[in-house]
Design a binder for these strands. Structure first.
Lengths: 232, 232, 232, 232
DNA sequence: CATGAATGAGCGTTCATTCAT
DNA sequence: TATGAATGAACGCTCATTCAT
């Protein structure tokens, strides 16, 4: 392990090596437990060079987060073709997401666990990525609602108006949050459970999510029990 | 701030004070950034006493995790009445889960973020809790399937056999994982987004999840597109 | 060298040992070149203890400056008896000053050289001491002027009014500055030149200074040549 | 800021640019806090070139000291015309000294503060300059004594023989030391106190010093009190 | 002549942990 | 029971200095 000691590399290359090493160490040990010494050694350079190029531990961590967030977002974006129906887009996005996280476990750990655990400054970096994905999912849900709506012109389903605005914004966001959380959870599960492919994980999620959304939008929601006064 | 300085407390009480302080500090600062000095000070005792009772930082953290996992599990257990229908049990469990995490933010942070980011040793502790919850949800899903299946004896739904075993174990576990992940994500969302109550979060989740499960078990799953040979 | 390793000392004692060591090292190496390691070793304690008691290198240096400035000021104050004539007070003050600086060379170096060379923050600390001494000298000069004035009641010397206000404030301050600077210079000279006692140094300075002041106050100043237009 | 980037300069010029930059940085930050990076950048050259021309930080600092000492000495020398009376020579020398230090504050800081605070090696460099100035002043005092002595042939002043040898060498040196110290102190005072010109500072010093010397040489010294046996 | 790339060595600071009382 | 006193070990960061081109 540890890059072959090749001297005199151009700066850009060295920087990527350092980021590779840093993502690995940060993913394994966590931000605080990771030592710059270990990162430098794994990158095959001396510590001062890491500081020369990346300034500080904080900046290095931020650079890791940005790079990993960028490649993950790009992977999902590349997996989705905008023209297709909403369910197909979601399916493709999920497949790309599971595939990328499975292929970059350290990067995923950095984004999913480490960045959110060590200070607002880092959490904010990932929050942008998450917000982008949640927005993407939100758009798909809205699109699905629109596609699903016009069953019969003039038809009104049981006491509910079923135009797009059928689902309040906040509920849509909540649904997107739930879906993203489920996906994150399944990614970890699929990546650590032998015998589960990322395709199966995606299928499982689509199954429950898309059907649930359909039922929801067709006006067949699950009804909570009347408020139990003892629990509020 | 900090417990009132009362001398000569029985050991059990002192230990709880220390754990209270530790959970708070670990939750606020994270495992590594938390200092034994600060914990001892907040607990109102001297540092050697912390070591006398709890041996080391690792052991102290483990004790925190165990206690918080125990109280969370107990809260969920207490919220559910076994005799009721599966959907009601799930609803009650979710409500209890959201309520407890909202009421113990430091404890929840310790379990959800800190314990999973600082070494296998701690992650394993929470994994046990998560496994218990996933198992609980898995049982409910299975029960729901059983309840849903025999709608009319002799009825056979479109080409699929719809007994319990209809859904393979692995898929059920996957569904449970997804549901738990969605719940975790929604807990964070509801706890940090103003205007969203934990009840609404629970309702949103039940809506999509239960409807989705119903559709699944009635043999109307979402069908993935045929494998695109170009992407595998 | 280095205190005998005596364990478990009360805090106040240890702090003085640390300050002793720090003054010595700071005096010898300068603020920046002094290492906390060396100071701790000379004090006979571990480095963390130095930080526990004195917080940081800056604070340690400040503490050194304050202590040395305090003892020097105290020594001068103790050497002067307020009731005596101005020349006697100045003489006693000089003797005390030379004696103290000769007896505490490291402390004097810290005050005179190091503190003024390493940042405004430290310079300001010594400035207070210096201001006190300059003020003391200023008072003596003014007193001398008052004593010298009434040679004959009604007598007016050549075109100059010879009350106290005779010498403008700024000039008095300048004189005090000059005298203090001369004293500092002579202290270094006497302390490093073999065969020169601090008594001789004091006598030399009194000789020129007091006579000069006398001449000045009697209205026989040295007259600068007319302004040479070539030099401005 | 920083020299315009002009390539291919002759070595001598480049060296001067480096020394200019170094004096400025050393003066501002102090010897240890000054970084070769900053100096090279301010000089507009790359760091290896600084090492190529000036070997090391120590050598660079030494070169700075030598150059600044040289220009200061030269300025004083140029300000004094040997044929004139001693008091006029001293006055001119002081004026030149104050003017040069005021005009080269970084250089003066390097000589007066930095060089004396960072090791014998550098202190010795400035000591040479100081010795030269002290020697110059010593000569002037001696000349003044000679001028002052033969006021009236045959005249003998109160019990003291007043030829040149009247003042022992050591005392003359001490006087010169005092005067130089006073000048240094006044230079700092005049350069930092608004409303005080270097001309006033010089006048103040001449006033007290020359009158004092005069009184001294005319055999009217200040007499120290009898040794107080209690104090030694 | 000039520089981008690279490092050995060391420093200020902190922290979990223990001893002696 | 409880604590003031003390430390070994490590970490983030910087800097003077040198290759290789």
């Amino acid at each position: 392990m540890g890059a072959v000691k090749t001297r005199r590399m151009p700066r850009a290359v060295r920087e990527q090596q350092m980021l590779d090493a840093a993502v690995q160490i940060f993913g394994r040990r966590g931000y605080m437990a990771a030592s710059m010494d270990e990162i430098a050694e794994l990158a095959g350079v001396s510590k001062p060079l890491v500081y020369l190029y990346l300034n500080s531990k904080e900046d290095l961590f931020t650079a890791c987060i940005r790079r990993e967030a960028g490649t993950l977002a790009e992977a999902v974006r590349a997996g989705v073709r905008p023209g297709l129906p909403a369910d197909r887009q979601l399916w493709d996005g999920l497949r790309a997401f599971f595939a990328h996280t499975a292929g970059h476990p350290h990067g995923w750990t950095v984004l999913h666990l480490q960045a959110r655990t060590h200070g607002e400054r880092f959490a904010a970096e990932v929050a942008a990525l998450r917000a982008e994905i949640v927005a993407f999912v939100t758009r798909l849900i809205a699109a699905a609602a629109r596609e699903a709506v016009p069953p019969a012109p003039g038809c009104v389903r049981a006491g509910r108006d079923t135009r797009d605005g059928d689902l309040p914004d906040q509920e849509v966001t909540g649904l997107a949050e739930a879906l993203v959380g489920a996906a994150e959870s399944l990614a970890a599960w699929a990546n650590t459970t032998p015998g589960v492919t990322s395709r199966q994980a995606a299928a499982t999620l689509m199954n429950v999510a898309w059907s649930g959304l359909g039922a929801l939008m067709e006006g067949r929601p699950w009804t909570p029990p009347a408020v139990d006064p003892a629990v509020s």
